[in-house]
Design a protein around this nucleic acid. Structure first.
Lengths: 334, 334
DNA sequence: CTGTTAGCGCATTCAG
DNA sequence: CTGAATGCGCTAACAG
């Protein structure tokens, strides 16, 4: 088992310098003469030297690694968000370790333990429903964490996200403004997501007595949306609009209509939630709520790095969504 | 700066034992008496002890971390694949560090350096186009790596994937069998993916002189598919079938047809590639090539862990795709 | 500007 | 079955 790569002392010997000097140039410390630096660099490339990560981490107590635990990556809103996080972290020389918990608090806790044991210096969590043990674990160890994809002004834990309830309320108000009174609201499994229930509550509040909302829970995928809309129309057809708590569901709705020989927005209006990449490209363009997934990822990532590097405080920040009007919602003529 | 958590020697003191014994129980070594083990465990939970990852890694030269570098995560075929990898790794107590290179060899190399410096013990790479420096870097350090999403029987490097050319050829043959002679082939940027060019070559070969293939490069998203099909039909309409090298493009094609007042498969047949989750749910169901993304992820993950843990050899394995017949391709009546 | 020295926290011989 | 001693590779004072 011969060594495959040089260690710092080999480089030191090769360059005729001390390990401290090698360390200095490897870490970009300024106090090294140009010639010395060059000598070191030459020796490094000659020996194909790269600092041993664990040794470095042991000395500095820094791994430059941040963990994100998400319920799933197979929903593109999470993919966008993760991509944004990875980008900021990479720009700052940090790495992203990813765990997918399947929206289960217990496995999320397990994941966190594993990631902690792997050297994660900070955690990005999704939603607000977590095992108390998780929060305790992180708290005791002084490992910073932030919740995302939700907003709660009263939370004592740092949050970077958007107010799902308020956004859903805005969607309902928008539909109301277009004259819709009877709307079917499609959403994924309530039990799996506090974001979904927040949206539901927000929608209910906004509707009040003036509107007639009909909530339909289905699986959070195209098939779920399709089935829900087909069922809806098979039973009776009192809804003039369908509000989907995910564009994914709305896409399924489009095909259900196609299948039924109907179309949006003439026969029924459809509104989404997410503003996924393709929602502008489908026909008709999907009117939806733009969620700042990318911005959210960039924000948490940057805040966490700043915090780790310079001790900057992590400030909870509410990001705003926005209604994107396209062609799938029509005004109802009274 | 007071210590937030106990170290191994605190646990040793608390339990009235040596650090060696603590280490033994933490690592599940068998040679510890039950009572001693219990004493240790109690002390651990009392002090909220968790081994220091860097110290452990320094001692064992193991981080239990595997890196994956992918071109993008915003294409669900990658999301599926990553999800599968994460799942196996998590089951085996490993963590996944993710880097997104944007299909650029240079930034992929940078990413690899960073991940190496973070402690990644093995690499999962996408495609076969990589900087020679990357391969050299990994080779010199004895860090195992495997290429995925491609197949090349002659490669000396380990590969787990599928033969894009052969699969594309199969798709073309299928279309030929249905009587199609003029087919438009939609694909993403050739420069960004050797998988795309492999599919293109495979399709050309399969077509030979018997068929008239017309390749159209567009952006790899719904919008790209939509635009391409709209343009195609605006110019002239000689194609009886459209073969899309991604279901994503096919989805765009569906909407282009809707927009043009046409529909599949009556006016034109459409065939995809990927078999994404929703491809069965759209109307008509998309006939496509099922890519074993999930299986591929599980396979590489497992092989790499086995290799790291038990020195098992990494064996290149070709995974098979399959044509999934649904309703979007019609037989041409001569 | 550069070298010396002392740990970082743990796993691991080797004794007993 | 348990303890004492050693070193993993590097960074960070502290000297010079």
């Amino acid at each position: 088992m011969t060594r495959k790569v040089g260690r710092i002392r080999d480089v030191a010997r090769e360059a005729g310098l001390s390990t401290a000097t090698i360390s200095r140039v490897m870490n970009g410390a300024g106090n090294v003469s140009p010639e010395t630096r060059k000598r070191v660099l030459d020796a490094c490339s000659k020996l194909n030297y790269l600092p041993h990560p664990a040794a470095r981490a042991l000395s500095t107590a820094k791994t430059r690694t941040i963990a994100a635990i998400i319920p799933t990556i197979e929903h593109s809103i999470y993919a966008k968000y993760i991509a944004a996080i990875e980008q900021v972290l990479a720009d700052r020389g940090y790495s992203l370790v990813l765990a997918i918990s399947g929206a289960d608090e217990e496995s999320e806790l397990q994941d966190a333990r594993k990631l902690l044991g792997m050297g994660a210096q900070a955690f990005i969590l999704s939603g607000g429903a977590h095992s108390p043990d998780l929060v305790a674990l992180l708290g005791e160890r002084g490992v910073p964490f932030v919740f995302t994809s939700i907003w709660d002004a009263d939370s004592d834990a740092p949050i970077v996200g958007y107010d799902n309830g308020a956004l859903a309320a805005r969607a309902v108000a928008y539909l109301a403004g277009k004259g819709h009174r009877d709307v079917a609201v499609l959403h994924g499994p309530i039990a799996e997501s506090d974001r979904t229930s927040a949206r539901r509550s927000g929608a209910m509040e906004a509707a009040g007595d003036a509107m007639n909302l009909r909530f339909i829970e289905t699986s959070l995928d195209v098939e779920g949306g399709r089935r829900a809309v087909e069922t809806l129309f098979a039973e009776r057809r009192d809804a003039t609009a369908i509000l989907c708590f995910s564009d994914i569901l709305a896409l399924g709705g489009y095909f259900a209509l196609t299948h039924l020989g109907l179309s949006a927005p003439d026969d029924v209006s459809i509104m989404g939630f997410d503003n996924l990449d393709w929602s502008a490209s489908i026909v008709p363009g999907l009117t939806t709520i733009d969620l700042p997934a990318r911005l959210m990822g960039a924000n948490v990532g940057a805040q966490l790095v700043d915090h780790l590097e310079e001790g900057a405080p992590i400030v909870s920040t509410e990001l705003d969504g926005a209604i994107v009007e396209r062609g799938s919602v029509a005004a109802l003529i009274a």
